[in-house]
């Protein structure tokens, strides 16, 4: 592989990283919001969210991406490819994140909440000062794990022509007629990114365990 091939590859890698990064950021926050709404158990809204989570978990990312890309224009909505990709990845990861947050909430110690109430904290202060800092720590390993799943699912956006780290290998081999080197190089970059996340997950687990004891 020559310099320009490497250059293309890194551009593809950057596309994967920023689209995944934006989706992760939105997905983590949106997952928290959905978990909070589900804890409120509002009728109909709750059932709709259950349906959303179940559908999002069963729908392949490729199918979801194609669906949004092809279907949005028929409703008069024009999304560019990148927005479509982010939307698909976000819709998918949010569902998983919502479940991670929700289980952290459900397992939160009732005793600690009582101690907060007993010193006169309102529910909002209790949530902000006592629960949320701990929920972040206990949810983090699960959230980071979901981040690596998102990266592993991100090649799905190649199906609508986004030149990500996967698709760029086709572009390169179209010029060099040697498909294997760019594919292996892309594999190495993916492993690097996901390896970092796995390492982060281990750190996060250690911190979470310290809190649990």
């Amino acid at each position: 592989m020559n310099t320009s091939a490497w250059h293309m590859l890194l551009e593809g890698a950057w596309t994967t990283v920023w689209i995944s990064g934006v989706s992760i950021a939105i997905g983590v926050v949106a997952g928290l919001l959905i978990a909070l709404i589900r804890l409120a158990r509002i009728p109909i809204v709750d059932q709709l969210l259950v349906l959303y989570v179940s559908l999002a978990r069963a729908t392949p990312l490729v199918t979801l991406t194609l669906f949004i890309f092809l279907s949005a224009p028929t409703f008069g909505i024009n999304l560019n490819r990148n927005v479509t990709g982010i939307l698909a990845l976000t819709l998918n990861t949010t569902a998983f994140n919502a479940e991670i947050w929700r289980s952290a909430f459900r397992n939160f110690s009732r005793e600690q909440r009582e101690a907060a109430m007993a010193v006169g904290m309102t529910p909002w202060i209790t949530f902000r000062r006592i629960m949320l800092p701990q929920l972040v720590v206990t949810s983090l390993p699960g959230l980071v794990n979901e981040m690596s799943f998102l990266i592993k699912g991100s090649p799905a956006i190649a199906v609508i022509g986004i030149v990500d780290l996967t698709r760029v290998t086709n572009r390169i081999s179209a010029v060099t007629y040697e498909p294997l080197p760019p594919i292996l190089a892309a594999c190495a970059l993916y492993m690097l990114a996901i390896g970092c996340l796995v390492w982060l997950q281990r750190l996060a687990e250690r911190r979470a365990n310290r809190l649990a004891v």
Partner: peptide, 17 residues
Amino acid sequence: MLPFLMLAYVLYYGLPT
């Protein structure tokens, strides 16, 4: 640590090498 599609790429595009 690999996306599934990359392995499919290796088998489909890479093995002919």
